[in-house]
């Protein structure tokens, strides 16, 4: 490596890229730049409010007044269910939320799947029927909630009225005044609203199943039930996972329906965590306590997501691989 080779022009000094050049032209950084706007939006509108909410739950903030840090005090007042002195109303709302979510989600799934399979048949006026099914989902929640509020009214219920005039009962059914009736009424209203979303999404999934699979199965002698159990259902699981995750999240965080119909009554037996959080944070002004309840929803939601994610995600055999 000598410099004295004849005829060689000395090489120009190698220009080392500066850190700024790297940021500008390096492919890895370029990827980062393209993602940055999306990340900024996520951080600003999702991560920041969530973080702020969690922070509020550690303070004694009131509406219009920033609080000071009080550690876990808000959570201590909520307590744990087996404590002798826990917050009964809060834990009742947890119980209500779980009952509401589990019952409504299961029924919505069953009815939604059934509807989807029906709609997947060759029916006359197929397009029209499919759009009609969507109506409950299209009506604004508050409107349908008010309609249900009248349907379940203690004096003017159309159901009570009809049954009385048919001579089946001689009193008004206490729909929203009895704790269990009220829960059932609300769950019914939620199901009525939520079924179309599930039905239409599953219908989309059903239509992606290739008819040749059914043909093959039928040739092998599969019954209708076996067709469903061993062809349709496995191919549908990925979309079920997605749709049920959404359904559970929406149901768990439902607010408008409850607020318009019962405001959490009678005696808090229909208070969900979301409505209780609103009542304590906004109406009673204790932002910190409300934020603690809202934050307490996060673990339940994470758990629900995990279950559907790991329990129902696509398996390798669905793409032709071996199940591990």
């Amino acid at each position: 490596m000598s410099d004295s080779v004849a005829g060689r022009v000395p090489a120009p000094a190698v220009r080392h890229p500066t850190w700024w050049d790297r940021l500008r032209i390096n492919r890895n950084w370029l990827g980062f730049w393209f993602m940055a706007p999306a990340a900024a939006i996520l951080i600003l509108f999702l991560a920041f409010p969530l973080g702020k909410g969690v922070w509020l739950s550690f303070t004694d903030a009131k509406i219009g007044r920033a609080g000071s840090f009080i550690g876990l005090e808000n959570y201590e007042w909520l307590g744990l269910p087996w404590w002798r002195d826990s917050d009964g109303v809060f834990w009742l709302s947890v119980f209500n939320t779980l009952v509401y979510t589990i019952v409504a989600s299961i029924v919505k799934f069953a009815v939604g799947l059934y509807l989807a399979i029906l709609l997947n048949q060759n029916l006359p006026f197929k397009a029209a029927i499919r759009s009609i099914v969507l109506i409950p989902f299209v009506v604004p929640t508050v409107l349908s909630a008010i309609a249900f509020w009248w349907i379940f009214d203690s004096q003017f219920s159309i159901i009570s009225w009809s049954l009385r005039h048919l001579g089946i009962i001689d009193y008004n059914i206490n729909f929203l005044g009895d704790p269990n009736n009220a829960r059932a009424s609300l769950i019914f209203a939620n199901i009525w609203r939520g079924v179309p979303f599930i039905a239409i999404t599953l219908l989309a999934g059903l239509q992606t199943v290739s008819p040749s699979l059914y043909e093959a199965a039928t040739l092998d002698g599969a019954s209708k039930w076996q067709n469903f159990r061993f062809v349709t259902f496995p191919l549908l699981t990925p979309i079920i996972a997605v749709v049920m995750t959404f359904s559970v999240l929406f149901t768990f965080t439902d607010f408008q329906l409850i607020w318009a119909m019962t405001r959490g009554g009678p005696v808090n037996s229909t208070h969900l965590m979301a409505t209780l959080s609103y009542q304590r944070a906004i109406l009673a002004g204790n932002l910190g306590e409300g934020a603690a309840i809202a934050t307490a929803m996060v673990p339940f939601l994470l758990f629900a997501i995990m279950v559907s994610w790991f329990g129902l995600q696509s398996r390798k055999w669905q793409q032709g691989g071996e199940d591990s």
């Binding site: 009214d153 203690s154 004096q155 206490n174 729909f175 009554g265 005696v267």
Partner: peptide
């Protein structure tokens, strides 16, 4: 009381009184 008062909100008794149900 008539059944259902545990579900009454601020407008329930107005309706019921005006309709003659209370």
């Amino acid at each position: 009381f008539t059944p259902g008062t545990a579900s009454w909100n601020d407008s329930s008794n107005n309706k019921a009184f005006l309709s003659g149900d209370v």
